Lab assay of single mutants.
Amino acid sequence: LGPKYVGLWDFKSRTDEELSFRAGDVFHVARKEEQWWWATLLDEAGGAVAQGYVPHNYLAERE
């Protein structure tokens, strides 16, 4: 699936296409579209919880 990303700060969605998340949440990014990335929010087991657009500057690649 490629690298995983972690949320740096809490983010509250403003549209139906955006995905709310908390700092520390883990994502798989499917598409990078300039300022907004289409991402899947993952649970602790790595299963998909939700999908939506997230601001790229709120995520960091997980080491």
Rank of each mutant, 00 (worst) to 15 (best):
L1Y: 12
L1H: 13
L1Q: 14
L1E: 14
G2L: 13
G2Y: 15
P3G: 10
K4C: 13
K4S: 10
K4P: 07
K4A: 10
Y5F: 09
Y5L: 02
Y5D: 00
V6E: 06
V6L: 05
V6R: 02
V6I: 12
G7N: 01
L8C: 09
L8S: 02
W9F: 13
W9L: 08
W9Q: 07
W9N: 05
D10R: 04
D10F: 09
F11Y: 15
F11P: 02
F11W: 13
F11M: 02
K12E: 14
K12P: 05
K12N: 14
K12R: 11
S13R: 09
S13Q: 08
R14N: 13
R14W: 08
R14F: 09
T15W: 08
T15M: 08
T15D: 08
D16C: 10
D16E: 13
D16V: 10
D16P: 15
D16W: 08
D16T: 10
E17G: 12
E17H: 12
E17P: 05
E17F: 14
E17D: 13
E18A: 09
E18T: 11
L19H: 01
L19N: 02
S20E: 06
F21S: 00
F21E: 00
F21K: 00
F21D: 00
F21C: 06
R22S: 13
R22D: 05
R22C: 12
R22V: 11
A23C: 07
A23R: 11
A23G: 05
A23M: 08
A23I: 05
G24P: 03
G24Q: 03
G24T: 02
D25A: 09
D25H: 03
D25E: 03
D25Y: 07
V26M: 13
V26E: 11
V26F: 10
F27W: 03
F27Q: 01
H28A: 10
H28S: 10
H28T: 14
V29K: 00
V29M: 00
V29L: 02
V29A: 02
A30W: 15
R31P: 04
R31L: 07
R31W: 14
K32N: 06
K32L: 04
K32Q: 06
K32A: 04
E33P: 01
E33R: 03
E33Q: 08
E34A: 13
W36S: 08
W36G: 09
W36A: 06
W37Y: 08
W37D: 00
W37E: 00
W37M: 03
W38G: 00
W38Y: 13
W38T: 01
A39V: 15
A39R: 01
A39P: 02
A39H: 02
T40G: 01
T40N: 04
T40F: 12
T40H: 09
T40S: 08
T40W: 12
T40Q: 08
L42W: 03
L42Y: 07
D43C: 01
D43V: 06
D43R: 00
E44D: 12
E44H: 10
E44M: 08
E44R: 08
E44T: 09
E44W: 06
A45Y: 14
A45Q: 14
A45P: 02
A45K: 14
A45C: 13
G46V: 03
G46M: 05
G46A: 03
G46K: 04
G46H: 04
G46W: 05
G47L: 14
A48W: 08
V49M: 09
V49C: 06
A50N: 07
A50E: 06
Q51G: 03
Q51D: 09
Q51T: 14
Q51F: 09
G52K: 05
G52S: 00
G52I: 03
Y53W: 15
V54N: 00
V54D: 01
V54Q: 00
V54W: 03
V54S: 03
P55M: 05
P55W: 07
P55I: 07
P55C: 06
P55V: 08
P55Q: 05
H56W: 12
H56V: 11
H56S: 15
N57L: 06
N57T: 10
Y58E: 00
Y58V: 02
Y58H: 04
Y58R: 01
L59I: 05
L59W: 03
L59S: 00
L59Q: 02
A60P: 02
A60R: 12
E61F: 08
E61W: 07
R62K: 14
R62A: 15
R62T: 14
R62G: 11
R62E: 15
R62V: 15
E63I: 13
E63H: 13
E63V: 12
E63F: 11
